[in-house]
Design a protein around this nucleic acid. Structure first.
Ligand SMILES: [Zn+2]
Ligand SMILES: [Zn+2]
Ligand SMILES: [Zn+2]
Ligand SMILES: [Zn+2]
Lengths: 165, 165
DNA sequence: TGATATATGTCATAATATAACATATCAACC
DNA sequence: GGTTGATATGTTATATTATGACATATATCA
């Protein structure tokens, strides 16, 4: 299974400034909201940005341990709890893994496209108040607070490999 | 957290014949498709139907063990693999749990409404080829093979409790 | 019947996640 | 600046979810 190391929306990008930009953006939002963007939280966010792919909590913990920032699972899980709670990072339920938000501006409803071949994950924005799910909920009398939208399949880079001409 | 023991779409129903009907339906489909609906697979399906809620693999395994049908995790996971592969049962990724399909007829794309208060899960049918996710995939050149659609929130039965008049 | 695929029993372990509690740091107020 | 309550971290232990591996049994079909 080949690894796609740089997939935002499955297309390669510059990546030079995107890590520092995202960190600065989140730093500002934390200050504005009175949240503590502590060293561990910041480093976990940076690790996820640098990889631009979904990482398991224990992969992240390994990195933290190497860097002397914490060696026990709760350290990683607490940082991830904070980051996901504020939508700086999203959990991909299908993979039990985490990925930095690709829209580092405000609260939103992400949807993910997960490639089963290269494991790349692309994030798109959707709207909770529109769409089939909202219709169903409305008809049922259910109040949606959060939605998990994850599609599995083949990304544009991996389709050729799977469809031998 | 109160338990809703009988929620199909959050509404109570007769339940008298629904277990036997669903079992008979799946049994017929297995014969038609040349699949082996073995005792363990059948019993796991029945357990999920009887409960009408999402059960973890180890809850199911406990039941199997009590009944002398198997005591080791692979027994439960293999049966669940079979049942989910053929869409007789669905996995709720958010809960790491399994629920009997509420539409025991053919291949479909389920969407789930998960109540955070009573843990009831309702299944609705959606269409993979319509909707926002399909638009996004089409625009991206991504081929969706399977979609996970899970909404969390409050079911009609639990909204009153959470909104003190 | 014999060959092959499919399913089960079982032991062991991997992978993911949280409980609990002591200590440290921060934020706000006096 | 020191007190205090809230928030965050360090650490040990354990819970929960899931799979690998391999022997045995059962089903399917020529
Ligand atoms: Zn996002
Ligand atoms: Zn791919
Ligand atoms: Zn279904
Ligand atoms: Zn409810």
């Amino acid at each position: 299974m080949p690894l796609n190391s740089d997939p935002i929306g499955f297309a390669h990008h510059d990546h030079a400034s995107c890590v520092t930009d995202a960190v600065a953006s989140v730093e500002a939002r934390c200050i504005a909201a009175g949240l503590q963007f502590t060293p561990v939280r910041k480093r976990v966010f940076e690790i996820l940005l640098e990889e631009h792919r979904a990482l398991g909590a224990y992969e992240i913990l390994d990195r933290l341990r190497d860097e002397g920032l914490g060696s026990q699972p709760p350290v990683a899980y607490r940082a991830l709890d904070f980051l996901t709670k504020h939508d700086f990072v999203h959990k991909i339920e299908r993979l039990n893994a985490f990925i930095a938000c690709a829209h580092p501006h405000e609260v939103h409803t992400p949807a993910f496209l997960i490639c089963r071949d290269c494991n790349a994950v692309a994030e798109a924005e959707t709207n909770l108040t529109q769409g089939r799910l909202a219709q169903i909920a409305s008809a049922t009398g259910f109040i949606i607070e959060r939605a998990i939208l994850e599609a599995e399949g083949l990304c544009p880079n991996c389709i050729p490999k799977s469809e031998p001409a």
